[in-house]
Design a binder for these strands. Structure first.
Length: 562
RNA sequence: CGGGGUGUGGCUCAGCCCGGUUAGAGCGCCUGGUUCGGGACCAGGAGGCCGGAGGUUCGAAUCCUCUCACCCCGACCA
């Protein structure tokens, strides 16, 4: 491709609206352009990368027996009503105004619709059906460029099986295929076991990439690979323990003291002598939650421990339930269920609120003074805590979800009545799995991991081109002739070449553009080297340069690209 | 949906507080010339109803009201 005829609007300056690295670089390198919040046009250069990623995905999906479909984005609303997901998706689902259609945010319904009354026998399975297509979600807040958009390219696969063992097999196949896909793409990723959320189902794994731009926070053990969302990651910190002698409970006047910090400095005590109280409402009933010191309540864990959803009590409710405002609430005299974090197990000589404004209690012994207290893991894992699997130190950081595989089971086949006859002639619901990859996220994550101060740094696999051929002064015939010749030869050899044949751009300008685009090899044709019948090769990743005789260039380029 | 911020030529921004020539700069773009291995130089030029609507005023990019768009934090997120 000749750059003079190729639409690559590179930007020297950082676009105002972009914040994360990948977004900035995709815009600056002329790969995408924003049309509206969360809606991007892929320009020719960017689309080449998308196609390379898609092709890798396609190869690995085909390798596990996947069959590629092309499914409609416009779906009749009534199909979605069968599974009750019009309501479940709520405002996230795009509705078409002038007909009863929705824009598909995912394709379980369509797949189940296709299978129903067609996949009728256990002999018709297993099946793996997939698509690489645009999906639509009315995200309340698109962000980070292509990472969270309102329309995005997704590979979604669905497995159909006649047995749970078959589902396990399909799930394992996808797990392995995903690892191959992300390995081939050159991504550093990790795998998190996760709850399957609104998709329903039993087992699930998320494929994640560490990134500042990530929306999930995970705890990760470099040593053994343990990884879990902090919402569920088990905390592994020792209990604060009991002191030998239990003091008597004693009321202390603490005027104006609200926070644990204030309490500690007012009484000159340490944080871990305090029990922080938070009141939640669970199933309509108040629950007092005690945390050691100033630790935050993990509401997901709390919900799990109490079996249901929880919400913090409103200020008015606090006053009504305890007689005090936030900051003066405590376990003694609290009328309702009391649950404490494991770290407080049987602790004594604690300070906490007195359920009376401007007073706290000292000498609280949870074992002696608080009957019916239960203990549970309610805190967030902190960096440096011991991994529950191997005991090494955990890291906590944010990450982007690239892919998600889960066992759906019969949720959709049940609600849409997709049944088959088993070996015994008995009717059974089809057992399904669902497996997604955010194609644009793969690209963004790759860029997050492969860039430097000059721009992008592609490996050959995903690079939009293999070689960036730069004619330095295209007003000189020898240079043009040499470049043209090399361009034709490389094309003939199947080497993908971007040829900077622009006449009006100066050398420095071309170099900066080339570094920004980050194509792995640069072949530089200039006056100086040409006199010795040589051209210069620069390896983008290392910055290394060397001269090569023109006659040997093709072989050398082929070697470098191996 | 809550909080914060920004809308001025294709891009990055100044001007706004304190209203008053013809609305500016750098980059980019067009013409001609010089340059030609790390985002060149000279000369000339095109391009803006200052996000939109209403209002205050003799006069509004600037003040007021409403509205739209976009960004960030939070809520939400298969």
């Amino acid at each position: 491709m000749r750059l003079s005829k190729f639409f690559v609007p590179t930007l020297k300056e950082i676009p105002n609206d972009a914040v994360v690295k990948s977004h900035i670089l995709m815009l600056r390198s002329g790969m995408i352009k924003m049309i509206s919040a969360g809606i991007y046009a892929f320009l020719p250069l960017g689309y080449r990368v998308i196609r390379k990623i898609s092709e890798i995905i396609r190869e690995e999906m085909n390798a596990i027996g996947g069959q590629e479909f092309h499914l409609p984005a416009l779906n009749p609303k009534e199909i979605w009503e069968e599974t009750n997901r019009v309501e479940a998706f709520g405002d996230t689902l795009f509705h078409v105004k002038n007909r009863d259609y929705v824009l598909a945010p995912t394709h379980e319904e369509i797949i189940t619709y296709l299978a129903r009354n067609v996949v009728k026998s256990y002999k018709d399975m297993p099946q793996i059906w997939y698509q690489i297509q645009t999906k639509f979600r009315n995200e309340p807040r698109p962000r980070s460029g292509v990472i969270r958009g309102r329309q995005f390219l997704m590979k979604d696969a669905y497995s159909l099986d006649s047995s749970w063992e078959g589902l396990d097999t399909a799930y394992d196949l996808h797990d392995k295929a995903y690892r191959k896909i992300f390995d081939r793409c050159g991504l550093k990723y990790f795998v998190v076991g996760a709850s399957s959320g609104a998709m329903g189902g039993t087992g699930s794994e998320e494929f994640m990439v560490r990134s500042e731009a990530g929306e999930d926070t995970v705890a990760y053990c470099e040593h053994c690979g343990y990884a879990a969302n902090v919402e569920v990651a088990v905390s592994n910190v020792s209990e604060t323990g009991r002191e030998q002698k239990s003091e008597d409970v004693k009321e202390i006047s603490t005027p104006g003291v609200k926070s644990i910090d204030e309490l500690c400095s007012f009484l000159k005590i340490k944080e871990d002598q305090c029990a922080k109280s938070r009141v939640y409402i669970s199933e309509g009933k108040p629950v007092l939650v005690l945390m050691l010191g100033n630790e935050e309540v993990n509401e997901t864990k709390l919900g799990k421990a109490l079996g249901g959803n929880v919400r913090p009590a409103h200020p008015e409710e606090l006053k009504e339930l305890t007689g005090a405002d936030a900051g003066s609430i405590g376990p003694i005299g609290f009328n309702g269920k009391i649950i404490a974090d494991n770290r407080l197990t049987d602790a004594n000589n604690l300070y906490s609120g007195a359920n009376k404004n401007d007073f706290h209690l000292a000498g609280i012994d949870l074992k002696r003074d608080v009957k019916n207290i239960t203990y549970s893991d309610l805190r967030n894992v902190q960096p440096g805590e011991k991994c529950i699997k191997c005991g090494n130190s955990l890291e906590v950081f944010s990450a982007i979800e690239l892919g998600h595989i889960f066992k759906l089971g019969t949720k959709y086949s049940d609600s849409m009545n997709a049944k088959f006859l088993d070996e015994n002639g008995k009717e059974q619901p089809i057992i399904m799995g669902s497996y997604g990859i955010g194609v644009e996220r793969v690209m963004a994550c790759y860029i997050e991991q492969h860039n430097d101060e000059s721009g992008l740094v592609w490996d050959k696999t995903l690079a939009p081109f293999h070689v960036h051929l730069i004619g330095l002064n295209m007003k000189k015939d020898e240079i043009v002739q040499t470049c043209d010749k090399l361009y034709i030869e490389m094309n003939k050899k199947g080497i993908e070449v971007l040829y900077d044949d622009r006449v009006d751009a100066q050398a420095g300008f071309k170099f900066k553009d080339a570094d920004l685009l980050g194509i792995p090899l640069q072949v530089i044709v200039g006056d100086k080297k040409l006199k010795e019948n040589k051209v210069e090769v620069k390896i983008r990743k290392t910055g290394e340069r060397f001269d090569v005789r023109i006659g040997e260039l093709i072989t050398r380029v082929e070697d470098e690209l191996k």
